[in-house]
Structure formats: C-alpha cells, structure tokens
C-alpha cells in the first residue's frame, strides 16, 4: 500500500509515477509530483519508481473552472 495525497492506494510491483498516473486516470496536463517529499520532474515520470509504503503527492495546481 502507498499513500497518494494522503489517501491509501494499492501498490503494484514495478510501479512508476507514469503507471500510477495512468491507473488514477490523472489526465490533467500540469501535475506537481513528489515521492517522499522529493520533486519528480515530468521527464522522469517513466523512470521514477514507486516503492511499497511511499508517500506520493500528485497535486493538480488548479483552483478555477
């Protein structure tokens, strides 16, 4: 189990940020991603591994419709 935005999400073997974003269907074009507080730039989403127990934040910087 990992935490995404302080909510529990099932962890999967081989999970990366890119895979996690796909699982969550987070299609918003601008995301702010951290793993255990460390910022992950967009170009590293595919390589950034998510380990079991990680604290992930995927913030959508949008406050206006």
């Amino acid at each position: 189990m990992i935490k995404v935005n302080n909510r529990p999400v099932e962890w999967q073997e081989g999970m990366t940020i890119k895979k996690l974003i796909n699982i969550l269907k987070y299609s918003y074009p601008v995301l702010i991603v951290t793993i255990n507080g460390e910022h992950i730039p967009r170009e590293k989403y595919e390589a950034a591994t998510v380990s079991d127990g990680d604290d992930v934040k995927i913030i959508h910087p949008i406050a206006g419709g």
Binding site: N5, N6, R7, Y26, H60, I62, A63, G65
Partner: peptide, 18 residues
C-alpha cells in the same frame, strides 16, 4: 455559478483542504 469558487481538485483530488 462556479465563478466564486471552484475547489473540486484542491478538495477531491489533491486532498489539500481536509
């Protein structure tokens, strides 16, 4: 009308205002 406050992402998705 959503022109006063649109907080769905901050609340539901980001969980920034628990």
């Amino acid at each position: 009308q959503h022109d006063e406050a649109w907080l769905i992402f901050m609340d539901m998705v980001n969980n920034q205002i628990p």
